[in-house]
Computed example of a mutant assay.
Amino acid sequence: MIKVNEVTKKYGEKIGNFKINLNINDGEVYGILGPNGAGKTTLIRQIMGFIKPDSGVILINDLNPWDKSKEIMEYTGYVAGEISLYEDLKGIEYLKMIFKFRKNLDWSYVEKLILHFELDTNQKIKKMSKGMKQKIALIAATMIKPKILILDEPTSGLDPVMKNQFNELILKMKSSKDTTIIICSHIFEEITKLCDKVGFIKDGKLIEELEIKNADITKLEKHFKKLYVKESVL
């Protein structure tokens, strides 16, 4: 479903992405893990077609996202790392606006998502907490029952209960095998609970890729923590 071949987007000596290769299968949940500033969001933005790679090729469902963004977005849900919503609208007004822009949606499913996240949609968005705004973004991204769902730090601002609700939703989507999901995070526990496979990015490079299934999670966690830690300069 998603192929990334030798993709480079360079902003500095160690800033950007450098010759990244990924193959994400149809229906797979893929985690992109790494410290802040590692280049995860740069990769996501290229996959979404928001920025053009300096070199290399990205294909989503055999389409180039830079050239065919409109077609790809018809079946893609996306939550940005820094969400931006129409602040003067009420939550319900915003969701109804998104609903009208999309095709063949079921409003009863939107209502189920609102209940699932226990969201009061009658408040104006500008008066909502960060966590409430994050819920709005998650509902807007998943209400279309996307073929592809791309989430950049999706649980930012959510309390532990709502993080569990998020996990429940993703696991349900995972079990259906109808959606290919990318979750970009710096939180190890989030990735291991939800993903089939994880790629670790550091200094703009994909330095390791591992299957989560049947892995010893304790050993895996220790291994990834070593990748996070830089050598002491003291």
Rank of each mutant, 00 (worst) to 15 (best):
G56W: 02
D152Q: 10
N23F: 03
D178A: 12
K133Y: 04
F18T: 01
F99K: 11
V161M: 12
D196R: 08
I92F: 13
D216Y: 12
D196K: 09
G157M: 04
L59H: 10
I181A: 15
R102A: 04
L149G: 07
K147N: 04
K40S: 05
I170F: 04
H116F: 02
D203G: 00
I217C: 07
I148W: 06
L22G: 03
K124Y: 04
L33R: 11
K222W: 01
L138F: 03
K174L: 10
I15W: 08
I150G: 06
E118I: 02
M128E: 07
S232H: 05
D88R: 12
Y94W: 05
I125C: 10
M97G: 04
D216K: 12
Y11D: 08
F200Q: 14
K19W: 00
A80I: 09
E82P: 11
F117H: 09
K135H: 13
E221V: 03
M73R: 15
C184R: 05
Y11N: 15
F200T: 09
E209T: 10
K219A: 05
I83F: 14
S176E: 15
E111C: 05
D159L: 07
T155K: 12
G81A: 02
N214G: 12
K68A: 09
G199L: 08
V161D: 12
I114F: 01
N5R: 03
G199S: 11
V229A: 10
N5F: 00
F200Y: 14
K127Y: 03
G12Y: 02
L95A: 12
G39T: 04
E87N: 12
F166M: 09
D26W: 09
I58T: 01
G27R: 11
E82V: 06
E208W: 02
D106Q: 10
D178L: 06
N104R: 13
I15Q: 15
E153A: 03
K126W: 05
G12H: 05
L115G: 11
K3G: 03
